[in-house]
């Protein structure tokens, strides 16, 4: 497909898909709590309403932070869809995450400051796992580009089974799901003031929510990659990973940041390294 058309299509479809998935999440969460829950379209209503609110800001950097967060999420997803370099993509995503953290830091508010401090730790927890997953891809394709995965004739999951688990954990952390929701909770009814998002409001919060839609699609895209040979299986894997984070969200409570970091740096990185080591031995990666 023409890359420009593909990019434009992604720009339109990704937020719709992400929003629907988020709506599904709220619906499922409600059902798990024996409630009816909001309409599936609820995330779109929320974003639409936030866009119509009166613009309020504590300083002019907040808007920059929110805008850069959205822009990098979009850029990262576009790079993913257009088969660009996965490692560059991850650092573009990191740029957005850092900007969101700085946006929280830019306000002298105890809530957003604490949220930002903790978001730094969340980043510390998931970042190595994302990079290691991409390294796992490189070991098998000899390239960091997303296109090289599509050129592979066997599903990645056969050689990278553990990365399905770590990627599920990463999605949980990225979406602020329990027990990893140390900086803010995904759903408002789990936390009132909402950590790092406390001081963002109106359009800025809408931009951040929109960025979450794109980011969700991107993160699930990484899971989809594990079975790219049959897109239905890939999609099933992605959905399974997503629903396990939702389930995890509903059956666990928030843990401390100490637990988060030590858990991810022992179990998370340990499992990822074990999988990578297996790939090294299996494929006899040439020096």
């Amino acid at each position: 497909m023409n890359p420009i058309a593909l990019g434009a299509l992604t720009l339109v479809i990704a937020p719709i898909l992400g929003g629907l998935l988020m709506g599904l999440d709220r619906r499922i969460t409600a059902r798990l709590q024996n409630r009816l829950g909001p309409p599936i379209l609820q995330p779109f209503y929320d974003v639409g309403k936030l866009m119509g609110k009166q613009p309020v800001a504590c300083n002019s950097f907040q808007g920059v932070a929110a805008s850069l967060y959205l822009m990098t999420s979009v850029l990262a997803l576009l790079m993913f869809v257009l088969g660009q370099d996965l490692l560059v993509l991850l650092f573009v995503l990191a740029l957005g995450a850092v900007m969101l953290i700085l946006g929280g830091f830019s306000v002298k508010s105890p809530y957003s400051q604490l949220g930002s401090q903790r978001e730094v730790l969340q980043m510390l927890a998931y970042e190595p796992l994302l990079v290691l997953m991409v390294v796992g891809v490189y070991l098998q394709t000899g390239s960091f580009s997303a296109n090289s995965v599509l050129a592979l004739d066997r599903p990645l999951l056969l050689t990278m089974p553990i990365f399905l688990v770590t990627q599920t954990l990463v999605i949980g952390i990225k979406l602020h799901k329990s027990p990893f929701d140390v900086s803010a909770s995904h759903h408002a009814h789990q936390e009132l003031v909402r950590g790092i998002y406390t001081e963002f409001s109106g359009l800025q919060l809408a931009l951040i929510e929109l960025a979450h839609f794109y980011e969700l699609v991107l993160l699930l895209g990484f899971v989809w990659f594990l079975w790219h040979t049959n897109w239905l299986v890939g999609a099933a894997l992605a959905l399974a990973a997503y629903f396990s984070t939702i389930l995890m969200d509903n059956v666990t409570a928030r843990m401390t940041w100490r637990w988060l970091v030590s858990f991810m740096w022992t179990w998370g990185i340990g499992l990822a390294v074990a999988n990578l080591a297996a790939i090294y031995f299996m494929l006899r990666v040439p020096r």
Binding site: R35, L36, Y45, H189, L192
Partner: peptide, 23 residues
């Protein structure tokens, strides 16, 4: 109102403890 019996989230209502987000 938030409990399963009444479930205001049906109407998209959420209890937000932050005036900057609230309507």
């Amino acid at each position: 109102c938030l409990t399963p019996v009444y479930d205001v989230e049906r109407f998209g209502m959420m209890n937000i403890g932050n005036p900057k987000h609230a309507d």
